[in-house]
């Protein structure tokens, strides 16, 4: 089930955390990792942020670069784990 405002929360976090001031604005589909905006190292802070905010735990095997490659994909991942939590 979609979580209200989730995509914008992710988009705002990524913008603040990873983008420099003069960067092009992001969309929900901008490739984050394959596009070189977020390196796979830096992904960890986004993961921690989402885990804290939504009280979920995303195991490493699910936290793949592919699953974090756009705001849309990140939102899908979070929704999946929130749903699991019940």
């Amino acid at each position: 089930m979609p979580i209200e405002g989730l995509k914008d929360i992710v988009l705002n976090y990524v913008t603040k955390e990873y983008l420099e001031d003069d960067s092009e604005p992001l969309t929900y589909d901008t490739p984050l990792i394959s596009g070189g905006i977020v390196d796979s190292f830096s992904m960890v802070s986004l993961k921690r942020f989402l885990e804290n905010k939504y009280a979920i735990s995303i195991p490493d095997e699910d936290a793949t670069p592919e699953a974090f490659d756009s705001v849309n994909k990140v939102a899908d991942l979070v929704e999946r784990f929130v749903a699991k939590k019940g």
Partner: peptide
């Protein structure tokens, strides 16, 4: 850093 099992994060 890649060779170490500790968690890695970065700052601007």
């Amino acid at each position: 850093i890649r060779l170490c099992p500790a968690m890695h994060d970065t700052y601007k």
